[in-house]
């Protein structure tokens, strides 16, 4: 900003504060609710300050799980671990695969190169939900139901990431590849020594997006897994709410929500510097 007027600054801050409050208040209420007994939060007025059950609720949830039949006594740490494994495999797998696919498309001349690119590009329009029945059939026939492979493999291909990497590679000057070639670097060494380091910000940005994408998967894990061993957090929360004949244990549900939020937040916080860089600037 060019001008510095006190009331403008004030206005900006007030606007920002309102925005922050609007986002933060529901989260605060969720956290508060997770620290009370069920009966306390079901009666008006709802409490706005933390209660006494913080440790009790969280430790019960994390280490023994809910007793109700649909959530089935799976401790939350187990679900978190499942979600983490799934999200990591999806994020890393997507990045590795799309990086190599984009590398092939940009730097090699092979028959039907553009056809391959357009095929990949077209799958952008086909999210998992659209192809879920055939995908399920394939995974079931391969005997991958109830396994981490089944949870992740169908989600590994990423047209978005391939496209992003391709666009980035196209901005890398041809002379860089030629200089590397003169310097005796073959294609793989060029990829490892030059392209990969240049892509770090893009990779970080993609990792944040893809990790969150993987962590938030709901429909696919729900279809894929019947064994409670493989239940993910998002599924778990849904099961906790879906109870027959009684009220859900809301404080526990809220605690699960708070815990489920933490890993993506942690990833964003840790990687945000690169994330922002990767979105706004291409380092050449």
């Amino acid at each position: 900003m060019v001008e510095r007027r006190p009331w403008l600054t004030l206005l900006a801050h007030v606007t920002l504060a309102i925005g922050v409050l609007m986002v933060a208040f529901p989260i605060w209420v969720t956290f508060v609710a997770s620290t009370h007994r069920p009966e306390d939060i079901m009666t008006a007025p709802i409490p706005l300050w933390p209660g006494t059950q913080l440790l009790a609720n969280y430790s019960e949830l994390l280490f023994s799980g809910l007793k109700n039949p649909s959530a089935g006594g799976v401790p939350l740490w187990r679900m978190m671990a499942n979600s983490l494994v799934m999200a990591l495999i999806i994020a890393i797998g997507k990045i590795v695969l799309s990086f190599m696919a984009a590398f092939a498309i940009v730097y090699f001349r092979f028959p039907f190169r553009m056809a391959a690119f357009w095929l990949i590009f077209m799958t952008l329009m086909l999210p998992v939900e659209v192809r879920i029945v055939p995908t399920f059939k394939v995974v079931a026939d391969l005997g991958m139901l109830n396994s981490y492979a089944g949870l992740t493999v169908p989600l590994l291909a990423s047209a978005t990431a391939t496209f992003l990497f391709r666009q980035f590679f196209l901005t890398v000057p041809d002379e860089l590849a030629e200089a590397a070639r003169m310097d005796g670097a073959g294609p793989l060494r060029f990829m490892k020594d030059i392209l990969l380091p240049l892509s770090t910000t893009n990779i970080a940005a993609l990792f944040v997006i893809m990790f969150t994408f993987g962590w938030n998967q709901y429909l696919w894990p729900l279809l894929m897994t019947t064994d409670r061993q493989y239940m993910t957090v998002v599924m778990g929360i849904q099961r906790m709410i879906n109870v027959a004949d009684t009220d859900p244990q809301w404080p526990m549900v809220m605690a699960a929500v708070i815990l489920a939020m933490l890993p993506p937040v942690a990833i964003v916080v840790v990687l945000q510097k690169w994330f922002v860089k990767g979105l706004v600037e291409t380092e050449k």
Binding site: E178, R181, D183, A185, I194, P197
Partner: peptide
């Protein structure tokens, strides 16, 4: 292959590796 012709080339836009130090740029080959 270019690398086996025992030649060196200087490009118009220099084509230095942006993420490497000057030393590494020279040492890479």
């Amino acid at each position: 292959e270019p690398a086996d012709r025992d030649i060196a080339m200087v490009f118009q836009n220099y084509a230095l590796y942006p993420h490497m130090s000057v030393y590494d740029n020279m040492a890479y080959g």
